[in-house]
């Protein structure tokens, strides 16, 4: 067993009276890709957001249980800003800010106090290179990011997330709004990124989970039905419901 990066123990989450997550136990391993699959509304995106406390923004949310990052409880006595610097996020729909490509990537570092131009230049370049979009944008860093194609925008958002040098990258269906070629680029990218980062990815596509992830958790109605190595889940699932979902009988 590898080193555990994120550990979730007995997590329950309520939106008002509705329980969206039930007794979740899950261990995310360092430098691995963990995929969360399941039908719509099963709680996988909600779960993802508990990992960097983006659910704090939603009203009437109550969270019980424990989520720890490198052994440190993230719901107890922790600076949310520091947490989100360590646990970055890429959203379902590309959401570059309405500013230049350069300013988008430099946004995070600037928020964390880096002001020196040379340092920012360096961060912007490395981040864009890591996100495999440098060659496409290096000549137009000062142009508005909204002029990029959807796939480029999403890679820009990945670069933007990498620019604050996180340890974990949460990806919420990052390719669902993209065409197959852009999707392939992002998938290849995740393979490279896991050398440096721990990745948790929510996906609707079982093929995608099968292609890129090391571990897979199957969510259904707010519960984790099965969690194990991806190869095992896809070839030899233990639970009947997992098998039904994977073979396409529902979902």
């Amino acid at each position: 067993m590898n080193k555990t990066k994120l550990s979730v123990k007995n997590l329950n989450l309520f939106y008002g009276d509705f329980q969206a997550l039930k007794n979740i136990d899950l261990e995310v391993e360092s430098n691995k890709i963990t995929a969360l699959i399941g039908p719509s509304g099963c709680g996988k995106s909600t779960f993802l957001k508990t990992l960097n406390r983006m659910n704090d923004l939603v009203e009437n949310v109550k969270i019980e249980g424990k989520v720890s990052l490198d052994g440190e409880d993230i719901y107890n006595n922790i600076d949310v800003i520091k947490l989100r610097k360590r646990v970055g996020m890429v959203f379902q729909k590309p959401n570059p800010f309405p500013m230049s490509i350069y300013d988008n990537v430099a946004y995070g570092p600037r928020a964390h106090g880096i002001k020196r131009k040379a340092k920012l230049d360096e961060i912007v370049e490395t981040s864009l290179k890591q996100a495999a979009i440098w060659d496409e944008v290096k000549d137009r860093l000062n142009q508005n990011a909204l002029g990029l194609s959807g796939g480029q925008q999403q890679r820009l958002c990945i670069a933007r997330a990498l620019a604050v040098n996180p340890e974990v990258l949460l990806m919420d269906e990052p390719t669902s709004a993209l065409d197959p070629i852009a999707t392939q680029k992002i998938e290849e990218l995740t393979e490279e990124l896991k050398e440096k980062y721990t990745i948790v990815i929510v996906t609707h596509s079982m093929q995608q989970a099968g292609r890129i992830s090391d571990n897979t958790a199957f969510f259904l109605l707010g519960e984790v039905i099965e969690f194990s190595e991806t190869a095992k889940i896809f070839s030899n699932p233990e639970d009947k419901r997992t098998e039904d979902y994977i073979t396409g009988r529902f979902g």
């Binding site: 923004l57 947490l83 959203f91 928020a111």
Partner: peptide
Amino acid sequence: PDAYREGSLGLGAS
């Protein structure tokens, strides 16, 4: 769009 706010807060901006 809320996506802008989420994007910014998600990067650890105040």
